[in-house]
Design a protein around this nucleic acid. Structure first.
Lengths: 146, 146
DNA sequence: ATATGTGCAAAGGGTTTGCAGATAT
DNA sequence: ATATCTGCAAACCCTTTGCACATAT
């Protein structure tokens, strides 16, 4: 589990732990993802280019795939939009604004967890990961006049 | 809200209600989606072709878009897979098997709803739709020896 | 009658792949 | 030293678009 805003050294350790070499491209990528919280591939490419203009799109894709496989990055599929990606952390809820697209994290509390376990028992379904997305309007988009 | 297994006449009414003409292509599509529960675009194309071989892929895409816009069909984005689509019904939970890909519906109960409302109040976030996907292993994939 | 919808084929855009040269360990 | 990684460009999807013909109302 990685927390937001970790520094390079810690990303190095994370990569090492899953057997991936700590290349500049990978470190920049993790920095970008960690800093943003959640981000699309396109935005990753743009952001990474700011500090390392020569990184290729292919490299970004290859690395995202590897990081997904190794579990250090997680996909957030979103209705009507491209998926976003985030560094692996505790399961939590996403509040997704259908107007501006902003994604906010919300802690998944204990009562919720119990609820999830209930579903397990009931259906003989072994849950390994929960993905809770609530779509609606963020505070800004509720109040701003269009 | 549409229930699974409605017949042609009812699909006609649904289409009329949102101002879409009741073409054979659309009726077949709704039938296929309704019958399957949840289905990918590719599988829709295959299934529709069985009863109506001349329907074009472009038509399927155009119709899915329109049905999403008009709200009679809903997208289910899934981690690491293509999105699936279902006819609009009450919000519910999806149990997604990460092994065989099977998607099962689970009723969203009242306690859950209260929880969602709590998030609203707390964050001034106006929820319009909830999407809860639980990933794991279905009963079959837990027991089958590989 | 006419506004919509369909099918075709071409265009578009995002993602993947293969390979030679570069890099981390 | 060498297994792994990067960048490039081509290949590959899946999805969208434009247009002439067909269809639902």
């Amino acid at each position: 589990m990685i927390e937001r805003g970790k520094m390079m050294k810690e990303y190095r350790a994370v990569l090492k732990a899953v057997g991936l070499k700590a290349t500049i491209q990978r470190l920049k990528l993790m920095e970008v993802i960690g800093h943003s919280g959640h981000i699309t591939v396109d935005d990753m490419v743009v952001a990474v280019h700011e500090s390392h203009p020569s990184i290729s799109v292919a490299t970004v894709y290859k690395n995202i795939s590897q990081m997904l496989e190794s579990g250090i990055v997680v996909e957030i599929p979103i209705v009507g939009q491209k998926s976003q990606y985030e560094l692996k952390k505790m399961d939590h809820i996403h509040l997704i604004c259908t107007d501006c697209g902003f994604v906010e994290d919300e802690q998944l509390d204990i009562a919720f967890d119990q609820k999830l376990n209930y579903a397990v028992t009931k259906d003989s379904f072994l849950i390994t990961r929960s993905q809770i997305n609530l779509y609606g309007l963020c505070y800004n988009c509720q109040t701003v006049v269009k």
